[in-house]
Each structure stands twice: as structure tokens, then as C-alpha cells.
């Protein structure tokens, strides 16, 4: 699988990840990600068929069973000392109590 890593793959995955990569970065990642995937390759040796002939169930989370749910309720924003919603505190730009974004569409 390692041979699948070349500069075109890194460029394509960079696009999917919305990352702009320089040629030097691409070259570096071809090497380091290639090394890592070569190490990961050993997972293909693991026997994933259990005692009863069934495939091992993947473990996707650290806890067993379903996650707890809560009612989907509207709650008030917490506000700062000026009565402004704190969630706007970090907005790069604000307009009329909302998040302002550049016009790019």
C-alpha cells in the first residue's frame, strides 16, 4: 500500500483536507507518511477471525453501549458583562449580533 503514497496522492488528500501545501511540504509528507503507512502495513498480518469463525467487531469507542441522549432544547446564550452573547467574543468579524464572513460565493 505504501507505493500508493506519492506527491499526487498527498496533493489530492491535501485538497480533501482543505490544506494548502508547498512543494517542500509535499515532498516531506511523501516520505514521512510513507514511512508511517509502511509501519501500519503490519496490521494486515493480524488474524481478524475469532474463535467462532466470526469477524472481530471493530471497537470504535472507549465506552460500551449507546451514547446517552439529551432533549434537544433551546437554551439562552451565556452573556458577557455588556449583555453580548459570549459566543460572539471570538468571531473574527461581527455584524448585527451575527458572524460576518467575506462574500465569496
Amino acid at each position: 500500500m505504501t507505493s500508493k503514497i506519492n506527491s499526487d496522492v498527498i496533493k489530492k488528500v491535501g485538497e480533501l483536507s482543505r490544506l494548502e501545501l508547498t512543494d517542500a511540504e509535499i515532498e516531506g509528507y511523501v516520505k514521512s507518511i510513507g514511512d508511517i503507512l509502511e509501519h501500519v502495513e503490519q496490521l494486515s498480518q493480524v488474524n481478524l477471525i475469532g474463535a467462532e469463525g466470526k469477524e472481530v467487531e471493530p471497537m470504535y469507542h472507549g465506552i460500551d453501549g449507546a451514547l446517552k441522549l439529551r432533549p434537544d432544547e433551546v437554551v439562552e446564550f451565556s452573556k458577557d458583562e455588556h449583555g453580548q452573547p459570549k459566543v460572539l467574543r471570538n468571531a473574527p468579524e461581527v455584524i448585527d449580533h451575527g458572524f460576518k464572513v467575506p462574500q465569496i460565493i
Binding site: 501500519v40 496490521l43 469477524e55 472481530v56 471493530p58
Partner: peptide, 13 residues
Amino acid sequence: DAYYRRASQVRRL
């Protein structure tokens, strides 16, 4: 399947 799913199976083991 070859990476994420397989790794999650090995995690169970």
C-alpha cells in the same frame, strides 16, 4: 476498510 476499520478491529483484540 484497510485502515480505520481494520485498526478498530485490532483495537478490540
